[in-house]
């Protein structure tokens, strides 16, 4: 496409987009939005110990082994996936 044609196409799209964006921006202004500080995420650095147990860090780290027998029982069982409902089965060791 020659530059002039591209320019004209872009200009048309831009004009159409701006008319819609400007209209909704004006609505926001009418609504008088207050300063929003966002939904806070938790700060992650702490100077305290973790929840007070002495055992959570002691189970053996064994990538292929027993630790992986934990059975996933999350929400995925309620989501229909291509492989059907109840998608997560216990890992067979």
């Amino acid at each position: 496409m020659p530059a002039r044609t591209v320019n004209a196409a872009l200009a048309g799209s831009l004009l159409a987009a701006l008319s819609i964006v400007s209209a909704s921006a004006a609505e926001d202004k009418m609504a008088g939005k207050e300063k929003c500080y966002g939904v806070a995420m938790k700060g992650q650095n702490d100077c305290a110990a973790g929840p007070g147990t002495t055992c959570a860090g002691t189970s053996k780290v064994d990538y292929q082994g027993n630790a992986w027998k934990a059975v996933a029982k999350g929400t995925c069982t309620t989501m229909k996936t291509p492989k059907g409902m109840g998608s997560l089965e216990p890992i067979k060791m």
């Binding site: 305290a48 973790g50 007070g52 147990t53 002495t54």
Partner: peptide, 21 residues
């Protein structure tokens, strides 16, 4: 000033943990 958690060590002696919880 903060809160701590109270547990026991291997010998049954008190073991306090600085848990701030």
């Amino acid at each position: 000033l903060g809160g701590h958690d109270a547990q026991e060590d291997d010998a049954g002696a008190p073991l306090l943990i600085d848990a701030h919880g």
